[in-house]
């Protein structure tokens, strides 16, 4: 273990968990209100970032306006997906719908390639890369206090991501629209029988998922650059949602932090063999948790009456 760097890696790992949580939130949103696992979330995220890039760099709008426009576009995209791809599938087995999202992910990927090309893009910097924050920790190593260095974008991405998750969480918990979404996911027919307009609810959920994805895409692109491979971050978000529980919004935060932390801890190892496992670490953690709690840490237990 590289003790001197340990605090640095722990904090960086935790901070990296923020955007992961936000990415996972998109998946949870769709699952919570429609009971569908959305495999196209990564492509939504990629498209959101590409929209922002196009408005900011190609069209030359100010960055804040570009982000707003991208949010609007991705919300419309989400609406469109529900209306034209998923609504015709209503009443079909869940598996076919989930496979539909898998097909959608490929289609969206193709569209992104077609319209934006596959080149690596310079994404505009939102937070200054200079002047990283320096924090002195109370830990002593070789008679010197350990100082950890935090890039601004890492810190602010974390803050924005967590705020986003909290806002959406409050929306689900305390508003009537959120309540309707939670109800609609549980039983479509029952929801219709009490007058919920389930298609509108699903449309709004997909639009929200598009917005959340864009936010995540922008935060990730600004720290790691933008190309078509951005969509693979959802692969790290899968363990986050399964770990936190598929229906749980607080679970995405806890899951995101845990997965980020596990990656950070492994990176702090002095053995290169262990360091190199940081890519697969999320899945190792996931396996262990699923063995003990199949519904995830905060997922819903199936209520069965006997």
């Amino acid at each position: 273990m590289n003790w001197q760097l340990l605090p640095q890696f722990v904090v960086t790992g935790l901070l990296a968990g923020g955007p992961l949580a936000l990415t996972a939130l998109g998946l949870v949103l769709i699952f919570k209100s429609t009971y569908i696992f959305n495999f196209a979330q990564g492509q939504l995220l990629l498209l959101g970032a590409l929209f922002t890039w196009w408005f900011a760099v190609e069209a030359g709008f100010p960055l804040w306006l570009s982000i707003v426009l991208a949010l609007v576009f991705s919300a419309l995209l989400g609406f469109g997906i529900e209306r034209f791809a998923l609504r015709p599938m209503t009443g079909q087995p869940l598996l076919s719908i989930v496979l539909m999202t898998l097909g959608l992910s490929q289609a969206l990927h193709g569209l992104a390639l077609l319209f934006f090309g596959g080149a690596q893009r310079n994404f505009p910097q939102i937070f200054s890369a200079a002047n990283p924050y320096k924090v002195t920790t109370p830990f002593i190593y070789n008679d010197n206090p350990i100082v950890i260095i935090l890039k601004q974008n890492l810190v602010w991405s974390f803050v924005i991501a967590i705020l986003g998750v909290l806002v959406i969480g409050a929306f689900f918990r305390y508003t009537h629209a959120g309540l309707a979404m939670r109800g609609a996911s549980e039983d479509h027919e029952l929801a219709q029988s009490i007058g919920l307009r389930i298609h509108r609810i699903f449309g709004v959920s997909w639009a929200l998922a598009g917005v959340v994805a864009t936010l995540g895409g922008v935060l990730l692109a600004t720290s790691s650059g933008l190309d078509l491979s951005l969509s693979v971050v959802v692969l790290a978000a899968f363990p986050v949602v399964l770990l936190g529980g598929l229906e749980s919004i607080p679970g995405t935060i806890v899951g995101g932090l845990l997965i980020g932390l596990s990656q950070g801890l492994v990176s702090a190892s002095s053995l290169s063999m262990i360091r190199n496992t940081s890519e697969i670490m999320p899945y190792v953690v996931l396996l262990i948790v699923l063995l003990i709690r199949p519904e995830g840490l905060f997922g819903q237990k199936r209520i069965e009456r006997i």
Binding site: R182, G183, E186, E189, L190, S193, Q300, I303
Partner: peptide, 11 residues
């Protein structure tokens, strides 16, 4: 009111 006491069981 549907048959079989259909509720939103997790709410």
């Amino acid at each position: 009111v549907l048959e079989g006491r259909r509720l939103f069981r997790h709410l």
